[in-house]
Protein backbone atom coordinates (compact mmCIF):
# COMPACT_ATOMS: atom_id res chain seq x y z
CA UNK A 1 0.00 0.00 0.00
CA UNK A 2 1.35 3.38 -1.01
CA UNK A 3 2.21 5.94 1.60
CA UNK A 4 -0.27 8.78 1.86
CA UNK A 5 0.49 12.45 1.84
CA UNK A 6 -1.28 14.34 4.60
CA UNK A 7 -1.49 18.11 5.16
CA UNK A 8 -2.61 19.18 8.59
CA UNK A 9 -1.89 21.68 11.35
CA UNK A 10 -0.10 20.67 14.53
CA UNK A 11 0.02 23.14 17.42
CA UNK A 12 -0.93 25.90 15.04
CA UNK A 13 1.77 25.22 12.47
CA UNK A 14 1.10 23.77 9.01
CA UNK A 15 2.61 20.30 8.77
CA UNK A 16 2.89 17.80 5.95
CA UNK A 17 3.90 14.18 6.29
CA UNK A 18 3.82 10.82 4.57
CA UNK A 19 2.27 7.89 6.42
CA UNK A 20 1.29 4.30 5.96
CA UNK A 21 -2.50 4.07 5.48
CA UNK A 22 -3.00 2.28 8.81
CA UNK A 23 -0.33 4.12 10.78
CA UNK A 24 -1.76 5.75 13.88
CA UNK A 25 -1.63 9.45 14.57
CA UNK A 26 0.43 8.60 17.66
CA UNK A 27 3.12 6.84 15.64
CA UNK A 28 3.32 9.69 13.16
CA UNK A 29 3.56 12.32 15.90
CA UNK A 30 6.34 10.40 17.60
CA UNK A 31 8.29 8.78 14.81
CA UNK A 32 7.78 11.12 11.84
CA UNK A 33 7.26 14.51 13.47
CA UNK A 34 9.56 13.92 16.52
CA UNK A 35 6.81 15.13 18.86
CA UNK A 36 7.66 12.55 21.51
CA UNK A 37 5.87 14.38 24.31
CA UNK A 38 2.82 12.31 23.41
CA UNK A 39 3.44 8.91 25.00
CA UNK A 40 2.30 5.37 24.30
CA UNK A 41 1.29 3.44 27.39
CA UNK A 42 -1.02 0.85 25.89
CA UNK A 43 -1.90 1.48 22.25
CA UNK A 44 -5.51 0.52 22.89
CA UNK A 45 -7.10 3.66 24.33
CA UNK A 46 -7.02 2.50 27.94
CA UNK A 47 -4.39 4.76 29.54
CA UNK A 48 -4.65 8.24 28.02
CA UNK A 49 -0.88 8.80 27.81
CA UNK A 50 -1.31 9.61 24.11
CA UNK A 51 -4.06 12.21 24.60
CA UNK A 52 -4.21 14.97 21.99
CA UNK A 53 -6.84 17.40 20.77
CA UNK A 54 -8.19 16.75 17.27
CA UNK A 55 -10.35 19.53 15.90
CA UNK A 56 -11.17 20.61 19.44
CA UNK A 57 -12.03 17.18 20.76
CA UNK A 58 -9.96 15.18 23.23
CA UNK A 59 -8.94 11.82 21.76
CA UNK A 60 -6.39 9.04 22.17
CA UNK A 61 -3.97 9.46 19.30
CA UNK A 62 -3.33 5.70 19.35
CA UNK A 63 -6.95 5.24 18.22
CA UNK A 64 -6.87 7.61 15.27
CA UNK A 65 -5.26 7.05 11.92
CA UNK A 66 -2.76 9.63 10.77
CA UNK A 67 -4.60 9.61 7.43
CA UNK A 68 -7.69 10.96 9.19
CA UNK A 69 -6.10 14.27 10.16
CA UNK A 70 -5.94 15.63 6.60
CA UNK A 71 -7.09 19.21 6.88
CA UNK A 72 -7.53 18.96 10.63
CA UNK A 73 -6.08 20.77 13.64
CA UNK A 74 -4.05 18.70 16.10
CA UNK A 75 -2.82 20.00 19.42
CA UNK A 76 -0.34 18.12 21.62
CA UNK A 77 1.34 18.67 24.97
CA UNK A 78 4.07 20.58 23.16
CA UNK A 79 1.47 23.21 22.28
CA UNK A 80 0.04 23.85 25.73
CA UNK A 81 2.42 26.59 26.84
CA UNK A 82 2.31 29.99 25.16
CA UNK A 83 5.88 30.39 23.99
CA UNK A 84 7.95 30.35 27.15
CA UNK A 85 4.99 30.98 29.43
CA UNK A 86 3.68 27.84 31.05
CA UNK A 87 -0.04 27.18 31.14
CA UNK A 88 -1.35 27.40 34.73
CA UNK A 89 -1.89 23.63 34.66
CA UNK A 90 1.80 23.06 33.91
CA UNK A 91 2.80 25.44 36.67
CA UNK A 92 0.48 23.88 39.24
CA UNK A 93 1.63 20.38 38.31
CA UNK A 94 5.19 21.50 39.05
CA UNK A 95 4.47 23.49 42.19
CA UNK A 96 2.18 20.86 43.71
CA UNK A 97 4.32 17.81 42.82
CA UNK A 98 1.56 16.32 40.70
CA UNK A 99 4.05 14.17 38.86
CA UNK A 100 6.45 11.49 40.01
CA UNK A 101 7.82 9.54 37.05
CA UNK A 102 6.14 11.96 34.65
CA UNK A 103 5.23 9.55 31.84
CA UNK A 104 1.48 10.16 32.25
CA UNK A 105 1.90 13.91 32.73
CA UNK A 106 1.55 15.01 29.08
CA UNK A 107 -1.70 13.07 28.73
CA UNK A 108 -3.06 14.46 31.98
CA UNK A 109 -2.19 18.02 30.96
CA UNK A 110 -3.92 17.69 27.60
CA UNK A 111 -7.01 16.07 29.14
CA UNK A 112 -7.17 18.52 32.04
CA UNK A 113 -6.90 21.47 29.66
CA UNK A 114 -9.75 20.01 27.61
CA UNK A 115 -11.80 19.74 30.79
CA UNK A 116 -11.13 23.28 31.99
CA UNK A 117 -11.69 24.78 28.54
CA UNK A 118 -15.21 23.35 28.67
CA UNK A 119 -15.92 23.53 32.39
CA UNK A 120 -14.06 26.31 34.21
CA UNK A 121 -15.42 25.38 37.64
CA UNK A 122 -15.49 21.61 37.98
CA UNK A 123 -16.09 19.79 41.25
CA UNK A 124 -13.56 17.28 42.53
CA UNK A 125 -15.87 14.51 41.37
CA UNK A 126 -16.14 16.01 37.90
CA UNK A 127 -12.36 16.28 37.65
CA UNK A 128 -11.95 12.66 38.74
CA UNK A 129 -14.43 11.36 36.17
CA UNK A 130 -13.14 13.62 33.41
CA UNK A 131 -9.61 12.29 34.00
CA UNK A 132 -10.62 8.65 34.48
CA UNK A 133 -9.20 7.86 31.05
CA UNK A 134 -5.73 8.87 32.17
CA UNK A 135 -3.92 6.27 34.21
CA UNK A 136 -1.31 7.32 36.72
CA UNK A 137 0.40 4.61 38.72
CA UNK A 138 2.69 6.80 40.85
CA UNK A 139 0.65 9.48 42.58
CA UNK A 140 -2.65 7.93 43.64
CA UNK A 141 -4.12 10.95 41.74
CA UNK A 142 -4.42 13.10 44.87
CA UNK A 143 -1.93 15.79 43.89
CA UNK A 144 -3.05 15.71 40.25
CA UNK A 145 -6.66 16.41 41.19
CA UNK A 146 -5.60 19.22 43.54
CA UNK A 147 -3.38 20.76 40.85
CA UNK A 148 -6.26 20.73 38.36
CA UNK A 149 -8.69 22.26 40.85
CA UNK A 150 -6.15 24.94 41.81
CA UNK A 151 -5.44 25.68 38.14
CA UNK A 152 -9.17 26.07 37.54
CA UNK A 153 -9.40 28.53 40.44
CA UNK A 154 -6.48 30.52 39.08
CA UNK A 155 -7.97 30.59 35.60
CA UNK A 156 -11.22 31.88 37.09
CA UNK A 157 -9.22 34.64 38.75
CA UNK A 158 -9.79 33.29 42.24
CA UNK A 159 -6.23 32.45 43.11
Amino acid sequence: MARRHVSTRVNGEPVEFLCEPHQTLLDVLRDELQLTGTKEGCGTGDCGACSVMLDGRLICSCLALAAEVEGAEVRTVEGIASGNELHPLQRHFLEEAALQCGICTPGFLVAAKALLDGNPDPTEREVRFALAGNLCRCTGYDKIIRAVLDSAAELRGEA
Binding site: T36, T76, V77, L94, E95, L99, G102
Partner: peptide, 20 residues
Protein backbone atom coordinates in the same frame (compact mmCIF):
# COMPACT_ATOMS: atom_id res chain seq x y z
CA UNK B 1 9.95 22.70 42.28
CA UNK B 2 11.86 19.66 41.11
CA UNK B 3 14.73 20.49 38.77
CA UNK B 4 13.66 17.98 36.09
CA UNK B 5 10.04 19.06 36.23
CA UNK B 6 9.94 21.63 33.47
CA UNK B 7 10.90 19.19 30.73
CA UNK B 8 8.32 16.76 32.04
CA UNK B 9 5.40 19.18 31.85
CA UNK B 10 6.48 20.42 28.43
CA UNK B 11 6.78 16.99 26.84
CA UNK B 12 10.52 17.34 26.36
CA UNK B 13 11.80 14.72 28.80
CA UNK B 14 13.24 11.70 27.04
CA UNK B 15 11.92 8.35 28.21
CA UNK B 16 12.95 4.93 26.99
CA UNK B 17 10.96 4.96 23.78
CA UNK B 18 11.74 8.58 22.92
CA UNK B 19 15.30 8.06 21.72
CA UNK B 20 16.11 7.69 18.03
Amino acid sequence: VRPDGLDKVRGRANYGADHA
